[in-house]
């Protein structure tokens, strides 16, 4: 069985708001000095899901991690390799830059077709930078595969996967035949933490790189030129900074002042 994990490198979401800066001219985020980009946390959890299926499936199962991004995205690939994935694929081409979810899915689908024998793809429920949460589904549509999103638990038997999904008011378990794409949520549990020997071993694993041409993609169909959704303005929202602090010498007086305000505003 061949399992694929899609991994994205993103700016650290724990960057404090004071260090978060954007370049309005290019509608992009300026990397915060001294804060390294990380593997999107949900993708780490997707990797954990794939590795658990591999471990349950025996020796012939293989996990490949794919990342589309700059050369620096090798760090995200290495992290998943250290967790236990077998091979890495980096999709790197200037033509891929500034795409939307659709062009990203298109490039990933081409790479998965290139691998040829893939049975299942695992993605994070959303990338923790743009938070769109649609690449996994678009990838399934590109490939014509079944899909299930926001998984909390996944099991495999006899060519089918059972996926327990998180709903608003509970959970549901769906079953579908492979090949399929699944997106994994934080309810799945924490990803494993690689130890030093595994990190050392990961450095020796193969990472194959593909360009647009090597995947048979026309540069005009991917990246910014192939995008259907165009970002026109990225900005830091103005926050409501007119906070009124409750005066008073004691907590009782402060609490009374607050209750009075909330009643006047008809909030309680």
């Amino acid at each position: 069985m061949h399992l694929v994990v899609c991994a994205k490198q993103i700016p650290d979401p724990d960057t404090p708001p004071s260090a978060f800066k954007i370049d309005e001219a290019s509608n992009s985020v300026i990397p915060a000095p001294g804060i390294s980009p990380i593997l999107s946390q949900f993708d780490g959890i997707a990797a954990e899901a794939a590795l658990r299926i591999k471990e349950a499936g025996g020796d012939d199962a293989k996990v490949t991690v794919i990342s589309m991004g700059a050369d620096s995205a090798r760090a995200a690939i290495k992290q998943v390799l250290a967790m236990g994935a077998d091979e890495g694929v980096l999709l790197n081409d200037d033509a891929f830059e500034d795409g939307d979810s659709y062009t990203t899915a298109k490039v990933l689908a081409s790479a998965i077709r290139e691998l040829g024998d893939v049975d299942a793809v695992f993605c994070g429920r959303q990338a923790a930078d743009w938070d769109m949460g649609q690449v996994g589904l678009l990838l399934a549509e590109e490939l014509g595969w079944a899909s299930a999103i926001i998984a909390k638990d996944i099991s495999y038997a006899d060519g089918n996967v059972s996926v327990q999904r998180v709903l608003t008011d509970g959970f549901e378990t769906v079953q579908m035949a492979l090949p399929a794409v699944m997106t994994v949520s934080n309810e799945f549990g924490e990803p494993r933490y690689p130890k030093l020997p595994q990190i050392m071993a990961a450095a020796k694993k193969t990472v194959t790189q593909y360009s647009a041409a090597e995947l048979g993609l026309d540069a005009a169909d991917v990246g910014a030129s192939g995008s259907r959704l165009k970002i026109e303005k990225l900005f830091i929202p103005e926050t409501d900074s007119n906070v009124e602090f409750m005066g008073g010498d004691t907590p009782q007086e402060q609490a009374a002042a607050l209750v009075q305000r909330l009643q006047a505003d008809k909030l309680i």
Partner: peptide, 25 residues
């Protein structure tokens, strides 16, 4: 940055007072 009203203080003191005031109200 997001708040309309605020109380600066230890919740351990503020919350019991708040519960009392809410009940009164």
């Amino acid at each position: 940055s997001f708040s309309r009203y605020g109380i600066i203080g230890d919740y351990k003191q503020v919350v019991p007072a708040l519960i009392e005031e809410l009940k009164k109200a």
